[in-house]
Nucleic acid binder design. Structure first.
Lengths: 233, 233
DNA sequence: TAGATTGTTAATCGATTAACAATC
DNA sequence: TAGATTGTTAATCGATTAACAATC
């Protein structure tokens, strides 16, 4: 029988000094922990040990404990981790419900698809608006998101405290748009253009998505696996 | 003056034994080399040294040479790399124009957006068809790609030698669909569902795209940068 | 208390960088 | 030939895994 004390008790009593510079390898694993713990939570599970989580996620228990300890002592010896507590801690770390404001720049197919998903709201990010150059979409709403002229981009970002710019414009337009929003105080850019977006300003974070690179990697792996099979014949 | 011999000459004369298991860190850099060399090629540049490429790409010259040497001796001492030759070699490695056949499963917003792009054709991958359960789209064409009933998925893959399945279905449907296409001989899965797709079959390659994870990573970085700024105030 | 499991240090492994001999 | 630049080995760095004392 689970002790109520242990389940709802005082976890993280010992707030270990948070490391100042956590490696990006660790940070990129956080969303996956978050996802997995969310599922366990919804399944009604209360606590989990690093060994159990290790089996579910197919990573070593050692890595889980090391990763979490970059941010604090979230577990309890002899008990494991309280799932709700840990989930909330990771949510906080990841800035979920920090209430960041985002705009999508480029109302093409990909921009619309992103606007349509629950991607943003699910992570507490507000999609305030979309911007495009095409007069036939300016002034309309796409999945309830208003579309404005790209001319108004800078002004809008300044007036609405926009934190995140989502770039789904052709790569030729990427730097032009980027200059406008960085000037307007945007803090991060989620770049879908098929190029490396490099900024002088070290205060602005860039997260590149290279769908094409991912497809090519898949093709490489398929090809290599095929060749191996042929050799073994 | 560039010697024609050197530019069009016999590069890679010494085909170094290709490593059997190249680390995924190296493989994931190949598409970027490919992209960069493609640009240099279009710009009419003929040759490049690892030092020059290093400056352009912001990686070390050492890493470039190490990476390329996993696949063969593509350069020439005292000269550098012939851009066209190297570009073609990397294209070949990545399976560009291998003529792989792909189907998109899920004709929702993301599936349509992917169908609309030149993503596939640009890499020599054929988008043969899309599949969905919605009767109102079945039988139509989306950006010139025919949409069929999900019922016909397995049969279609078998009859048309489909190599790649692009998964843009809700995560609840992911395994069901996966079983069908793996059974039908698909070699690789490009998974956009917000979940880890794990297969028993080691011969089928899975490439996961986690857009949500990427957004969260961006939020983490923005939050951390903000906190650092506040501390310095 | 005894058992379990963390937090953390130490050992290992792998990836990146540096150095330089080979060679074009 | 002399100069340049690769291919490759050796050194360094960082990330993962193992081990175990601390402790709930």
């Amino acid at each position: 029988m689970e002790s109520i004390d242990k389940v709802n008790g005082t976890f993280g009593k010992r707030p270990i000094e948070q490391k100042t510079n956590v490696s990006s390898a660790v940070i990129r694993r956080l969303p996956r922990y978050h996802r997995c713990l969310g599922e366990l939570l919804r399944a009604g599970k209360l606590r989990i040990s690093s060994a159990e989580l290790s089996a579910i996620m197919d990573v070593t228990a050692s890595q889980i404990r090391q990763d979490l300890n970059c941010f604090g002592g979230f577990g309890q010896q002899g008990y494991g981790y309280n799932i709700k507590f840990l989930y909330n801690k990771i949510s906080e770390l990841l800035g979920v419900d920090e209430g960041y404001n985002a705009v999508i720049i480029g109302a093409g197919k990909l921009g619309r698809a992103l606007a349509a998903t629950h991607m943003f709201e699910r992570r507490g990010v507000n999609r305030l608006a979309m911007f495009d150059i095409d007069p036939s979409v300016i002034g309309t709403r796409i999945y309830d998101v208003p579309v404005y002229s790209i001319e108004e981009l800078g002004k809008f970002c300044k007036e609405n405290n926009v934190h995140i710019g989502v770039l789904t414009v052709p790569k030729e337009a990427a730097y032009e748009v980027t200059n406008v929003i960085v000037e307007a105080g945007v803090k991060g850019i989620w770049n879908f253009a098929n190029m490396e977006l490099r900024l002088d300003n070290p205060d602005v974070i860039v997260e590149n998505i290279h769908l094409g690179d991912s497809l090519m990697t898949l093709c490489y792996e398929i090809k290599t696996a095929n060749e191996k099979r042929e050799q073994n014949d």
